[in-house]
C-alpha cells in the first residue's frame, strides 16, 4: 500500500495529517479529525487493510479525547494514531459496525470515561458491574486535569535535536564494531 496514496485519501476526508517520527513516538501518522468524520475514516482504513489496534480515551480539557490506533498487517509498517474530541453532548459515532473489534474497546471506554458511542449496538458495561454504570473510574480529578495542548508533542526544536542525532550515530558504529570484534576474539 502506497503511503502517499493513503495520505491523500485521509486529506480528502478533511483530516489533519501529521507525520511523526517513529523512533521517538512509536507511530507514523497522527490524524486529528472531528467526531463526524470518524466513521468515514474507519471505512477508509478498513478498505486499505488496516486492523484496529485499540480504541481508548484520554480525559483532558476541553473535552475527552478518543484515540484510535490502526496498523497495517504487513511488513513495511504503518501505524496510525487518530484522535477526535468528544462532541458537546458527550457522544462519538461508533465504528463497531465497521470494525467489530471496536465493540469491546468502545464498551470499555464507556465504562471508564462515560463516552457514549452513538449507534453502538450494545453499550452495556463490559468490565464494570452493571450497578456501577456511572462510576467512570478513569475520569481525572479537577486539579489533575490538563489541557489537551499540554499533552501534545512539542514542536521539535532544531538545535538540540541535531546535536543529539550525530551523537547517537557515533555511538552506533562503535557498538557494532565492538560486537563484531568480540566473536573473532572468542574464536
Amino acid at each position: 500500500m502506497n503511503v502517499k496514496a493513503m495520505q491523500k485519501k485521509w486529506l480528502e476526508l478533511g483530516v489533519e495529517v501529521e507525520e511523526t517520527e517513529y523512533a521517538k513516538t512509536g507511530y507514523d501518522f497522527s490524524l486529528t479529525l472531528p467526531a463526524e468524520k470518524v466513521h468515514a475514516l474507519a471505512e477508509v482504513m478498513l478498505a486499505d487493510g488496516f486492523y484496529l489496534v485499540f480504541v481508548t480515551a484520554v480525559h483532558a480539557l476541553p473535552a475527552i479525547e478518543v484515540v484510535y490506533q490502526f496498523a497495517l498487517a504487513s511488513s513495511p509498517r504503518c501505524r496510525v494514531m487518530a484522535r477526535t474530541a468528544v462532541r458537546a453532548d458527550g457522544t462519538v459515532p461508533t465504528i463497531s459496525d465497521i470494525y467489530q473489534g471496536a465493540n469491546w474497546h468502545e464498551r470499555e471506554a464507556r465504562d471508564f470515561y462515560g463516552v457514549v458511542f452513538a449507534g453502538h449496538p450494545n453499550l452495556v458495561p463490559l468490565i464494570l458491574a452493571e450497578e456501577d454504570v456511572d462510576l467512570k473510574p478513569l475520569l481525572k480529578e479537577e486539579k489533575n486535569l490538563k489541557d489537551i495542548s499540554a499533552l501534545r508533542h512539542l514542536p521539535a526544536e532544531a538545535e538540540p535535536k541535531e546535536e543529539k542525532a550525530p551523537a547517537a550515530a557515533k555511538k552506533e558504529p562503535a557498538a557494532t564494531d565492538k560486537k563484531a570484534a568480540k566473536p573473532q576474539a572468542s574464536n
Binding site: 513516538t25 512509536g26 507511530y27 489496534v53 481508548t56 501505524r79 494514531m81 499540554a150 499533552l151 508533542h153
Partner: peptide, 19 residues
C-alpha cells in the same frame, strides 16, 4: 517529555501495545 508514545511488541498471544 510531553506528548503521547506508543510501543508495540509481539507477545506470545499477539500484539501488545503500550500507549
Amino acid at each position: 517529555p510531553q506528548g503521547d508514545y506508543n510501543c508495540s511488541v509481539e507477545a506470545p498471544r499477539g500484539e501488545l501495545s503500550y500507549y
